[in-house]
Amino acid sequence: MADKAREDDAISAVVERLTDLFSATHGPAEVQAAVAKAHASFTGRRVREFVPVLVERKARALLSKSSG
C-alpha cells in the first residue's frame, strides 16, 4: 500500500511539472489526460520503481508531439 501511495504522489508531481512546462500550449486537463494515458500503459507491470520516470517521458513526448 505504501508503494501505491508513493507512486501516486510521484505521478501527481509529474502532472504538476508538466502542467508548468506546457502551460503555454496545453491546458491542465490535457496534461492530466496525457499523464493518465501514459500511466495506463504501465498497468500490470510488476516492477513499479521506475514507472513515474517512464510516465513523465511518455507524457512529455505525447504533449510535445501535439504542440507542433
Rank of each mutant, 00 (worst) to 15 (best):
M1W: 13
M1K: 14
A2D: 06
D3T: 11
D3H: 12
A5G: 10
R6Y: 12
R6D: 15
E7A: 15
D8C: 07
D9Y: 06
D9R: 15
D9L: 11
A10N: 08
A13Q: 13
A13R: 08
A13N: 11
V15S: 11
V15K: 15
V15W: 06
E16K: 15
E16M: 10
R17N: 14
L18H: 08
L18P: 13
T19S: 15
D20Q: 06
D20S: 12
D20Y: 01
D20W: 02
L21T: 15
F22K: 10
S23V: 11
S23K: 10
A24N: 07
T25W: 02
T25H: 01
H26D: 02
G27S: 14
A29I: 07
A29L: 09
E30S: 06
E30M: 10
E30R: 14
E30C: 12
V31K: 02
V31E: 01
Q32S: 06
Q32V: 04
A34T: 06
A34F: 05
V35E: 03
V35T: 06
V35D: 06
V35H: 02
A36M: 02
K37V: 07
K37S: 11
K37C: 08
A38I: 02
A40F: 01
A40K: 03
F42Y: 15
F42A: 03
F42K: 07
F42N: 08
T43W: 00
T43M: 01
G44I: 05
G44L: 10
G44E: 00
R45Q: 09
R45A: 01
R46Y: 03
R46K: 14
V47D: 00
R48H: 03
E49N: 04
E49I: 03
V51E: 00
V51P: 00
V51W: 00
P52N: 05
P52M: 06
V53Q: 04
V53F: 04
L54T: 09
V55N: 08
V55S: 05
V55G: 09
V55T: 09
R57V: 05
R57Q: 13
K58M: 01
K58F: 03
A59M: 06
A59K: 05
A61Y: 01
A61L: 02
L62E: 09
L62A: 14
L62D: 07
L62S: 13
S64Y: 08
S64P: 10
S64C: 11
S64W: 05
K65C: 01
K65G: 04
K65E: 10
S66C: 11
S66E: 13
S67A: 09
S67G: 12
S67M: 10
